[in-house]
Nucleic acid binder design. Structure first.
Lengths: 337, 337
DNA sequence: TTGTACGCGTTATCAG
DNA sequence: CTGATAACGCGTACAA
């Protein structure tokens, strides 16, 4: 079923069918109806490749996700879902590319095969070769997360440094003097993963400001690692009375570890952090935390990208979100010994 | 950068460049080298739309996922990741379509806009209009899950009925006489979600065979629902000594509920089920369960789809997996009263 | 409202 | 056997 066939059956020319569909030139109601009838009957839809070839755009967005080897975290999944949904609202499709570094065939197809009108990158590192590659090709793109030198790029991110610092201040206000940061995994830190580094910086600075004893440690992104991590922490540093974390996947293990040890939250021990809302609400008692607005971030990334595609020359915009910390039940006054 | 530009700079014709790249006709080594040099210099890659238009195939697979409104479960995420990875191995891209029913614009673009060479559908219901729609368009497709009348369609699924029945038999062998099935959510059951219905059937049949008192209940797909569910169950049916479940997302809540009530697993209470491996291993004590092989299933779905695209007329194949039940630590002899 | 050139890669056909 | 020419796939939009 191509446009010529529709034209033939409706007794008009191909261009008339095209104009009737796009509305870019007026077409008689009567003709329009006849054409529509044929289209409905044959269930015609324009060939996407032909249209893309002619228009020079694909109506498709690329979404670069971490390779499947590493299980996607809940938060990454939230971004994927919200990006796909926001794109669908704009009648755009989303092409997935699972790629870590560059030199990846799938990534190269996306960036230089003109398969997409623009791309969204996730899991940005402080130094990220994919960003450099994208800049060099000139394909419009937006990153979720930002590099150490984000000038001139479009991005949306959560201000982990500020948020973690706020958690520290909140705990300091409650009288806690010995606080630990449970960071993301050691591998991510080693790879230069932005949120982990910025959280560490925010924690350290706040601890210094409040003259706290702060200790920092990394922890795998899963409940089992969380459980061993909190056990180890309480053994090595029994003086610690509060924890700050951005490692949501470890939360169930942290909770289990504390519960097993008979530690009451928040009477004996406080915990606060940054996490998607459902992680905070699944925690017992519910976690005082800044809720990462994945839905909003994905939608904003798509908005920013569409702007950039429409006006590639316009100055790069970005969005640094600092969601409020929701006071729930996991933080309380420091225990008096 | 188009093929004509490359040809011009290399001092040959467009067709020679094409043949040099595809190898479908011999080209002198010398010419080939010159062409390759220009391509490398300009970082040329053929325009995907033009190629798709000419070849009549897009080198793209469609993956229809549940709409983002309902948070994707871990298992669904596993399918997405494994499908994307398997497709990347075959140098295919994956186009995502978040659609529930049909009449969905994104779904329609996929199935009738010739944007993909084939599609993979997830979250199949016993009666699924999307499957009917796909059959009517003739686009090759494979489903993860199967309808109540899967004849003539390609699919890959886990045999929930048999697996849940095996769990029941295992528990019956251990002397349990009062067993409950914690099913997926009531909404999914009402929507005719296959795994929920087949699990129910398998449970009921096994319970009858072993002359057990079986009670069945639905439970939301999250820890909080799991916790209230298990509390309710123990209150309404204190005689229950074992639970079978396929609701992996509820597991953390089930565990927490039992732990809070001071119920020891497996001394006082046994639990078994079907779940992705990490859910089973995160459970305390580790869960006796059939591990759903999402990685293998996603890869198989892609294989099946590629076969089907290559030979659309061939008889439809399917794969019904019955992974072994891994005996871990959550099941033991029924307590003697 | 219609005829037609165009976008770009592929491949059948023809010439050397 | 190598290289070039031209037609084709299909929707769009300008000129008529």
């Amino acid at each position: 079923m191509n446009i010529g066939e529709i034209a033939r059956r409706a007794g008009v020319s191909r261009s008339t069918v095209s104009y009737a569909l796009s509305g870019k030139r007026p077409v008689t109601e009567e003709t329009k109806r006849r054409i529509q009838a044929v289209i409905d009957e044959l269930d015609y839809r324009p060939n996407a490749a032909a249209r893309a070839l002619k228009e020079g755009r694909t109506r498709t967005l690329g979404l670069v996700i971490p390779p499947a080897g590493a299980r996607l975290t809940d938060m990454q999944l939230g971004f994927v879902a919200s990006v796909v949904e926001a794109a669908a609202r704009a009648d755009l499709d989303v092409l997935l590319s699972p790629s870590g570094g560059d030199h990846d065939r799938s990534f190269e197809r996306i960036v230089s095969g003109r398969r997409v009108d623009g791309a969204i990158l996730m899991e940005i590192r402080l130094e990220d070769e994919r960003v450099a590659r994208l800049q060099q090709t000139g394909l419009p793109f937006v990153t979720i997360g930002h590099t150490s030198n984000p000038h001139g790029t479009c991005w949306v991110d959560v201000d982990y440094g500020t948020l973690i610092a706020r958690c520290v201040h909140h705990l300091a206000d409650l009288g806690h003097r010995w606080i630990a940061l449970i960071n993301r995994s050691a591998e991510l830190v080693a790879a230069g993963y932005g949120p982990a580094h910025r959280a560490l910086a925010g924690f350290t600075e706040a601890a210094v400001q409040r003259d706290l004893r702060g200790i920092t440690l990394t922890c795998g992104d899963d409940p089992i690692a969380g459980e061993t991590c909190i056990e180890q922490l309480r053994q090595d540093h029994p003086e610690i009375t509060a924890v700050v974390t951005l490692n949501e996947a470890a939360l169930p293990g942290i909770q289990r570890g504390l519960e097993r040890a008979g530690v009451r939250i928040p009477q004996d021990f406080s915990i606060a952090g940054v996490a998607a809302r459902h992680w905070a609400e699944d925690f017992r008692p519910q976690l005082t935390a800044a809720d990462v607005p994945t839905l909003e971030m994905g939608a904003s990334a798509v908005d920013l990208l569409l702007e950039r595609i429409a006006a590639p020359g316009a100055p790069a915009r970005h969005l640094l979100l600092t969601p409020p910390i929701s006071l729930r039940a996991s933080t309380g006054p420091a225990p008096t010994r």
